[in-house]
Write a protein that binds this DNA or RNA. Structure first.
Lengths: 204, 204
DNA sequence: GAAAAGGATTGAGTTCGTTCATTTTTGAAG
DNA sequence: CTTCAAAAATGAACGAACTCAATCCTTTTC
């Protein structure tokens, strides 16, 4: 019977994630010390490092959970896309963007993206990169679906196009989180402009 | 007569930049302490903070100088582009990529990009963002030049297309510096594939 | 059930980026 | 030349992320 240790481990992981998530949101990533997280989770600082390799990786674990939700939500939209190239793409992108600030602040996004570039080898950095690839693949799938329905040129490579669209929306999102004062509406506006251009290109 | 103070300031700035640049390259960003830089530059640690707001900003100052060179080199190519859409674009991109590892290690690029996302408000972070915009504008200019020469469809918006191309090459560069083992040749290969696709799209 | 073995927790200690009160240097005024 | 004000340099002190040797719990073995 090897259950107690496992259960405690899962329980502690959950408590640490929960504590960090709430504290980061409430006080900001930089303002929160590992000791604060440890105290809230009722463990010691050292224990946090048994579960997460660095403070940044702990943040990426939280962000990854959020991105997982977005991937899940996107699946539905891709399997049953609204008609029209512009509509469909804009809808998927809006889904991504609108989820982004539900549980995470701009500061958290900045730190998370920064950390995933700076330390690409940590466990949750790799996970985050994977999830990004899934989002990119999702855009590709949507474009392929649009092609099948005759809403987009058939002769274009959906894989290449999808990556292009994803890169663009990703870069706009980076610009968005870099500008603390920029409201979500502005992101929508610039995104819609680019999306309609791309959609026009895709229709040929 | 207010010359000595200015001269010493410029001299110190140069010594700090030079020391940091050499040490970062030789030992890696993380391995170098501010005190090491200060000692090499023959100033105190505190003085480094009179000239650069943080260690990361000091790195971005160095990286920015490198990017400035690339912008300069790109100007020549854009004003006199080689014939053919694919050739021209590929040439400019190759110029960017090949300069990248001359004076900077992958680790330095990772840290620099991470810092510019994480702390977008510091002086050299803003400078770096500006320079990125210049590179993006350069790609736009090249595309516009190609359109004028009849090598690209006239009905496409060069500004939008340029940003798309820049986002794509930028993202590929991020993937490149994130993978320490990836050789420059691989970056060229993936880049060429995407570029030819995009060039085909641009020709219509 | 006792006890040995292995794993996990702990918190004091180390390191390094950053700050700031103090001291030193520079430029201008008398 | 002396004095004064302002600017810059200094390095000791601080704070927080991270490490690690010692300790404490589980699990397994007999």
């Amino acid at each position: 019977m090897t259950g107690l240790r496992e259960k405690q481990k899962a329980n502690r992981t959950g408590r640490i994630l929960d504590a960090a998530s709430r504290l980061f949101r409430a006080q900001g990533y930089d303002a929160v010390r590992i000791e604060d997280i440890a105290a809230t989770a009722e463990v010691s600082a050292g224990t946090c490092y048994n579960y997460f390799s660095t403070k940044g990786d702990l943040l990426l674990a939280i962000v990854s959970m959020e991105v997982e939700e977005v991937v899940e939500a996107g699946r539905a939209l891709v399997t049953n896309p609204p008609a029209g190239t512009g509509q469909a793409l804009a809808g998927l992108i809006r889904l991504y963007y609108d989820h982004s600030l539900n549980y995470l602040s701009k500061e958290m996004w900045r730190k998370a993206m920064a950390f995933s570039i700076e330390a690409p080898g940590t466990p949750f950095s790799q996970r985050y990169t994977e999830l990004d690839a899934m989002l990119s693949a999702q855009v590709c799938d949507l474009i392929a679906a649009l092609q099948q329905r005759g809403h987009a040129r058939q002769d274009l490579d959906a894989g290449v196009l999808g990556q292009i669209v994803f890169n663009t929306l990703n870069q706009m999102f980076i610009d968005f989180v870099k500008a603390d004062a920029m409201p979500l509406a502005d992101l929508h506006r610039t995104s819609d402009a680019q999306t309609t251009s791309l959609a026009a290109l895709m229709r040929g």
